[in-house]
Simulated scan of single mutants.
Amino acid sequence: MDLRDKPYLKEIRLKRELVTDFAQFPFCVPAVKELDSLQFHPDVTFFVGENGAGKSTVIEAIAVAMDLNPEGGNKNTGFSTETTHSKLDGFIKTIKSFKKPTDYYFLRAESFYNVATYLDKLIPPPIQGYGGKSLHKQSHGESFFSTITNKLKGNGFYVMDEPEAALSPARQMAALSAIHQLVENSSQFIIATHSPILLAYPRARIYQFSEKGITEVSYEETDHYEITKNFLNRHEQMMKILMEG
């Protein structure tokens, strides 16, 4: 791998001069309201934070700004079940490198069923690229894992929104290994996640989304790491607190 090939997406900047009202969605979301620019790691960049912090809003805008379908899939996945995505992509400036990836994919947990349905209507399962089997004929977890291990070919730009949603802890570790192999094969990932397993990947930048905006943090500084660690180390005491509270 030539390190000069990456990152494919170096940075995004919010075109603040185009925003007429920061009280309107999605600009009222603190992560967006305080956004100036975000710089991406050549290998993996993680977005973490509580539900509603704006991770999916920003990651969706990045995917659409990179010409990917807001519901997921690759650049050839052209469908829309319902137009629900924000218009944030139109206010995002993308700063790219001189190198272009040859593979693209947006794996989005909440709308992955729609991608599977679209593919079954359009392309015979053996040639869809997901292991020779319809995604609807695989379990939820198998379909996610098959996407990571079969559909992603390397030399790619990959955006993922909660890819761990259907994966067991063991499969999350296997997915982490697959992601690393793709990174080694000149790929770049931007991932929104709640998984402390995925977040442990060492060649990464982590952005914490909160009411204060977006800040870069270390793995050990994330709530996901701290809460999981405390719960596992003190699960009996924690259960008493939770059950009695």
Results as ranks from 00 to 15, higher is better:
F144M: 14
K93N: 13
F144Y: 08
R203I: 00
T149K: 06
N74D: 15
N233Q: 15
Y105M: 08
I62L: 11
F79T: 03
V58P: 00
Q181E: 15
K10D: 07
L35N: 02
E110Y: 02
V64E: 03
L176G: 13
P125L: 10
F157E: 02
P26M: 09
K153T: 10
K153L: 12
E211T: 12
D2R: 13
A109H: 09
L107F: 08
H224A: 13
T117M: 12
L199V: 05
G78W: 12
I62C: 06
Y158G: 05
Y8D: 10
Q24A: 14
S134Q: 02
P70L: 07
C28N: 15
G131H: 01
V44Y: 05
K10I: 13
A178Y: 04
M239H: 12
V64I: 15
S195D: 06
F145V: 00
E34S: 13
I179V: 15
Q208G: 00
F27G: 07
F91T: 05
E244M: 11
S97D: 11
A200W: 04
Y219I: 08
E50W: 02
Q172A: 08
A65Q: 08
G52E: 08
K55D: 04
L135H: 01
Q188N: 12
F40H: 09
E110C: 03
K6W: 03
K137H: 13
F231N: 04
V32G: 03
R16L: 05
Q208R: 14
D21M: 08
G213P: 11
V115T: 04
E220L: 13
S139P: 05
P70A: 10
S187T: 06
Q188G: 12
K212H: 13
D2W: 10
F112S: 01
S195F: 02
D161C: 04
G129F: 09
P42E: 13
E82V: 11
M160D: 00
K229G: 01
E162R: 01
L38S: 06
E34C: 09
N230G: 04
I241T: 13
M173K: 15
F189I: 03
D120Y: 00
L119D: 00
K55G: 05
S139D: 05
I12W: 06
Y105N: 10
E60V: 01
G131D: 01
F98W: 05
K121Y: 03
S143P: 00
M1K: 14
L9R: 08
R205S: 15
Q181F: 04
L199D: 07
I179M: 08
F209H: 09
A109E: 06
G131K: 04
